[in-house]
Design a protein around this nucleic acid. Sequence first.
DNA 1: TGTCGATTGTTCGAGTACGAACGAACCGGC
DNA 2: GCCGGTTCGTTCGTACTCGAACAATCGACA
Lengths: 147, 147
Amino acid sequence: MPKRRVNGALGGYALEAQIGFVLRKAQQRATAIFTRHFGRHQLTPTQWTTLVRIHQYGSLSQNHLGRLTAMDPATIQGVVKRLIERKLVTRIADPDDRRRKRLGLTPAGQRLVRRLIAKAFKVSRDTLHPLREREQALVHDLLERLG
Amino acid sequence: MPKRRVNGALGGYALEAQIGFVLRKAQQRATAIFTRHFGRHQLTPTQWTTLVRIHQYGSLSQNHLGRLTAMDPATIQGVVKRLIERKLVTRIADPDDRRRKRLGLTPAGQRLVRRLIAKAFKVSRDTLHPLREREQALVHDLLERLG
DNA sequence: TGTCGATTGTTCGAGTACGAACGAACCGGC
DNA sequence: GCCGGTTCGTTCGTACTCGAACAATCGACA
């Protein structure tokens, strides 16, 4: 047998078999489902995550919020800015640490979160719908260990 | 017991329990691992996916490529444009259909794909490393059914 | 032949994501 | 009191993502 170069087959590398590829597609479908439910409210997944976190903590600094929502300081900055412009979030100086700005929800922000919470549950249900109940718990657990 | 409003707890809604949240975090880690390996080559995950697909098909139209890589026509347009600028991809008019443009790899593009294929395998291995082998196959299967 | 619906690729705008660099403020130890 | 390292938030640049609207072209069907 002559030595042969692997080219067409690329040594058996198939995109469909790579975790990154299927992860990206699953993510796409998940955000599409989210947008179907939340699109009319002009909310993106990250904006929703941000509002829920602030609601949960009542008040917290911007970088802290970023860590809790898995967002870069640069990213959270833009997200918060847009939510402030829409009067859903407030930002005041922290008297104890002049670098920090404490974030909070406006009354409108609180109302919005409470009004949409049922939809948020439905988004997760719809996203996981292709799987059986045991598989849903399983994929959640496995992804948590990958994240 | 008086009627009480659900607010702090939001009816038991916890971000960590939502599939979209863990999916996003897993995706973040996956692209971070990719970037660690491919960053020095100035390649993003979508650019790599694009190059591999063209390599696999030899030649195909832009929208077709978009479907095979799970990218919007608007997205694939930008990705291809940047790869053409870097002389990794070629684009020629399709004589049979004047709307279409056939894409292909330049010799440099082919060499690059072959040179990096081993790294691509390693990216997937590293990404799945937190899981046992059986779990790796499992999460891949479950994600495929979610995508 | 002519028309109408579908496909191909483009542009625009808004939003996410992140590396890199930066000034300001904090905090530890000296 | 100072000094070096860290944290906080910002800005810049590049890239992906997708909805929406668009012109050009194709194909099927009357």
